[in-house]
């Protein structure tokens, strides 16, 4: 039963992801992205990683996608934008990338099967273990991630200013 849940979730994730990359309206695409992320959260749960599943929902589906939504609303991507997307997305454009990426996918699947990796343990690795490892051997990685986030914060603040690099406009 639980195994079937995995395949269902995988199917949903694949389908919604296809929809994400093909939609013309950014807001619609974002909703599908949320669906995709949620179904992956289910898979995480089934893989015995409840903490990661929670993070997937809270941070990915919650924070990051909401950030996207804000920007989409700020830029006011309405019908005009959808028209433009129709111009940009001619069907012929899909062929080249699809072939390239298809080759890549086949190769990856080949490599995966070749290695015969076996199955998951079916055991849950809870938040406690993750936390112990995170603030034990991975402490340095945590510090690095903290620094990265700080840098991103400053960068985003700088980039988000209204008239970047144009002092005269800023002054007037």
């Amino acid at each position: 039963m639980a195994l079937a849940l995995f395949y269902i979730a995988a199917a949903v994730a694949l389908a919604s992801t296809v929809l994400v990359i093909t939609r013309r309206n950014a807001a619609h695409a974002l909703i599908y992205l949320v669906v995709s992320l949620l179904s992956i959260a289910v898979i995480f749960f089934l893989l015995g990683a409840p903490f990661a599943a929670a993070l997937e929902i809270v941070i990915y589906a919650g924070a990051i996608v909401v950030l996207f939504l804000f920007v989409v609303m700020m830029l006011n991507l309405g019908r005009r934008s959808a028209e433009r997307e129709r111009l940009w997305l001619r069907p012929g454009m899909w062929i080249g990338p699809a072939i390239l990426v298809g080759v890549l996918l086949l190769e990856m699947l080949y490599v995966i099967v070749l290695d015969a990796p076996g199955t998951t343990r079916g055991a849950v690795v809870g938040p406690k273990e993750v936390g112990t490892a995170l603030f034990g051997p991975y402490l340095l990685a945590v510090e690095l991630a903290a620094m990265l986030l700080l840098a991103a914060l400053i960068g985003a603040y700088h980039l988000g200013r209204r008239y970047l690099g144009d002092r005269r406009e800023e002054l007037s």
Partner: peptide, 16 residues
């Protein structure tokens, strides 16, 4: 991005 993808494909080809 295309270049990177092609590169990736080549790497996988070699690995396979």
């Amino acid at each position: 991005a295309v270049n990177m993808a092609v590169g990736l494909a080549v790497v996988f080809l070699l690995a396979g």
